[in-house]
């Protein structure tokens, strides 16, 4: 009996091309527990964004998937996302209703020709039958929650009048307005300045605590992981290297790749003996390690590796 909001089991994603197929995900399994923030961390090509797109069913037609993605919304029957038909009414409910997403680029995610208030209200109207006034009132309340001041006047403004950080707040408001049980954030702070990033991270965390939903946070920055996550999934080359609580993984990394990531961070000095075991994980290094994700106790899993 699994009691997580989202379970990914043996997910394989393969892209067909003219010159053969490329495996983007090779049997990825992890859980996102209820009311927590799970971070997926990895470098480019690790498959972290493919995973989030698979959950939202946003993969292109050339992708072939197998394995299970199961969402267990509170007070509802579980949904097997991976086997849903594209025209199934649950699909519409899923996207933006039960699960919603915040993307990296705050510039392109908002329509430049509509007022902020109308755009947020539109997100309400897409999923619930309420009057325009009620939707606008909800939008105003939500924008206040994400920390905008003078909401009344801001709702009448257009996206180009907003700074990057303010836009990202609006996008978070749009994503949260239908009270999704799972919020997926795909590198939401990568394009932002460091001070804005800090504010957005604090905001996402406090909103998660307040709304009691779950967040799947995708990033390449272990500093961001440490600040936001309860649990961490470390990915490399389409596989999960290590999962566990944020303290377990960052304070005592077990897998050499995690160690390599940590020691690559500027300003981090790792004890020398650990350092040597992380070598050989240079760019494009082959897996060369075990294929089994073993239980390391305390809710923690580590992929086997040769020492």
């Amino acid at each position: 009996m699994n009691d997580s909001l989202l379970s990914i089991e043996d997910l394989i994603v393969e892209f067909k091309t003219e010159l053969g197929s490329v495996k983007a995900l090779k049997e990825v399994s992890f859980d996102v527990p209820y009311s927590s923030i799970t971070a997926v961390v990895g470098e480019s090509g690790s498959g972290k964004s493919v995973t989030s797109n698979a959950i939202m069913r946003l993969l292109p037609d050339s992708a072939q998937t197998s394995g299970e993605i199961i969402l267990r919304p509170q007070g509802r029957e579980p949904i097997a996302i991976n086997s849903l038909d594209e025209r199934d009414p649950q699909m519409q409910e899923l996207r933006g209703g039960l699960v919603s997403m915040v993307f990296q680029e705050p510039m392109t995610a908002l329509s430049p020709v509509h007022r902020i208030g109308d755009q947020v209200a539109e997100a309400v109207l897409c999923h619930r039958k309420v009057s325009q006034e009620a939707a606008l009132a909800e939008a105003a309340a939500m924008l206040e929650q994400v920390g905008l001041t003078e909401v009344e006047s801001k709702m009448r403004m257009y996206p180009f009048e907003f700074s990057g950080g303010m836009r990202q707040r609006v996008i978070i408001a749009m994503a949260l307005i239908c009270n999704p049980q799972l919020l997926i954030c795909d590198e939401p702070t990568t394009a932002l300045d460091v001070t804005i990033q800090a504010e957005i991270l604090v905001l996402i965390k406090s909103l998660q605590r307040k709304l009691n939903n779950s967040v799947l946070f995708i990033t390449h920055d272990l500093g961001v992981v440490a600040q936001i996550a309860d649990r961490v999934v470390v990915m490399y080359d389409g596989q999960v290297m290590e999962t566990g609580s944020v303290r377990q993984v960052l304070k005592s990394p077990q897998h050499p790749y995690t160690l390599h990531l940590l020691s690559s961070m500027p300003g981090i000095k790792i004890v020398e003996e650990l350092q040597t075991s992380s070598e050989g994980w240079a760019e494009g290094a082959p897996m060369g390690s075990g294929t089994v994700l073993g239980d390391a106790g305390g809710g923690r899993q580590v992929r086997e590796f040769s020492k």
Binding site: V194, T195, A198, E199, L201, G223, A226, Q227
Partner: peptide
Amino acid sequence: LLSAIPSPDPDEKLEPL
């Protein structure tokens, strides 16, 4: 700027700026 740097140590939490 310095206070906004996310530390990779989960025990050093970011404070609201």
